[in-house]
C-alpha cells in the first residue's frame, strides 16, 4: 500500500502580508511559512493508515528551498519519503501547471491513494486536486470529513452545503481532498525529527518530470493580473470618537438596521 500526500507551503497565518512591487503577489522575504492547514489533515489521514498497517507515505511539494522545511516536518511526523519539485521553471504555474507536475510524480509513484488538502490557505482555488486526479485518471472526491478504508475502496463522507453529508464510495486507486477537522493532527516528535534526517528527500526539476515548456508562467492559462487589499466599500462607515461614543454609535446603527 502506498499513499501520496500533496503538501503546499503557504505564508504563516500570522504573517504580515505586503504586496510585491509587480502587484501580482506578496513579498515573500522575511515572512514565515507553514504547511497549508488543510494539507496537515491530509497528511494525518495518511499517517493513520500507516499506523494501522503496512503502508508507505510519500509527501510531495512544489516550491523553492524553503519548502524543504515543510517536507522535513512531514517526515518528522512520520512520512517515509519526500519528493521536492524545485525548479524556477515551475514559478508562475497556474493550477493546471501545478497539477501536471504532481501528476508526473503520481505516475512515477503509482500510489493506491492520493490525499490532498481541500484547498490552500493562500489561494483558495481548490482546483489542483480534481485536476491532478483527472490528469492521472483517478476517481476523486473533495471536502472529505470522514474516510473509511476498505480492502479495495474508500468510503468517504463529504461535506455539502447546509451541513449535510454525502457518502461516496471510490475504488482504489483514487484521490481524496480533505476538509479541516477530519482528525487530530499529530506533532512531529523529537525522535521523528531526528529520524527524518535520514529519510530520503528527492529533488526533481521540471525537466526530470518531462514537463519542460508545459508548466510555469509561460504555459499558464490563468495569470494573476493584480492582487490588492479589499477596497473600502462606499457603504462602509467608520465610527469615530471615544470608546463610549463608538459603542453608542454602533448600538444605534444596529437598531437602525433592525438587526436587534
Amino acid at each position: 500500500m502506498k499513499i501520496m500526500v500533496c503538501l503546499k507551503q503557504v505564508p504563516h497565518q500570522d504573517a504580515r502580508l505586503d504586496i510585491d512591487s509587480a502587484g501580482t503577489w506578496i513579498q515573500e522575504s522575511n515572512i514565515k511559512f507553514e504547511i497549508n492547514t488543510y494539507d496537515t489533515y491530509a497528511l494525518e489521514e495518511a499517517l493513520r493508515a500507516k499506523d494501522e498497517g503496512e503502508c508507505e507515505v510519500v509527501v510531495v511539494s512544489i516550491g523553492p528551498d524553503r519548502t524543504t522545511q515543510a517536507l522535513r516536518t512531514a517526515l518528522g511526523m512520520g512520512a517515509d519519503r519526500a519528493v521536492h519539485i524545485k525548479d524556477e521553471e515551475a514559478d508562475g504555474s497556474d493550477a493546471l501547471g501545478l497539477a501536471k507536475l504532481l501528476a508526473a510524480v503520481a505516475k512515477e509513484e503509482s500510489p493506491d491513494t492520493i490525499f490532498t488538502g481541500f484547498m490552500s490557505d493562500d489561494d483558495n482555488f481548490a482546483a489542483v486536486p480534481p485536476m491532478l486526479a483527472e490528469l492521472v485518471g483517478l476517481p476523486h472526491t473533495t471536502a472529505a470529513v470522514k474516510v473509511v478504508r476498505g480492502d479495495s475502496s474508500l468510503t468517504v463522507d463529504r461535506e455539502t452545503e447546509g451541513g449535510s453529508y454525502e457518502v461516496v464510495e471510490l475504488p482504489l486507486p483514487c484521490l481524496v481532498s480533505v476538509q479541516t477537522g477530519i482528525n487530530q493532527v499529530r506533532y512531529a516528535s523529537l525522535k521523528g525529527i531526528m529520524a527524518a534526517k535520514k529519510k530520503p528527500l528527492d529533488v526533481k526539476s521540471v525537466a526530470d518530470l518531462g514537463l519542460s515548456g508545459s508548466v510555469g508562467a509561460g504555459a499558464a492559462k490563468v495569470k494573476i493580473e493584480k492582487i490588492a487589499p479589499p477596497p473600502k466599500g462606499d457603504t462602509a462607515e467608520l465610527l469615530e470618537g471615544s470608546t463610549d461614543e463608538v459603542v453608542a454609535g454602533l448600538v444605534t446603527k444596529i437598531k437602525e438596521l433592525g438587526l436587534l
Binding site: 522535513r72 518528522g76 506533532y187 523529537l190 534526517k197
Partner: peptide, 12 residues
C-alpha cells in the same frame, strides 16, 4: 532545520 523543527513542535 532539525533544531528549528524541534523548537516549533514543542512551541505548538
Amino acid at each position: 532545520d532539525e533544531e528549528k523543527l524541534a523548537r516549533n513542535t514543542v512551541r505548538e
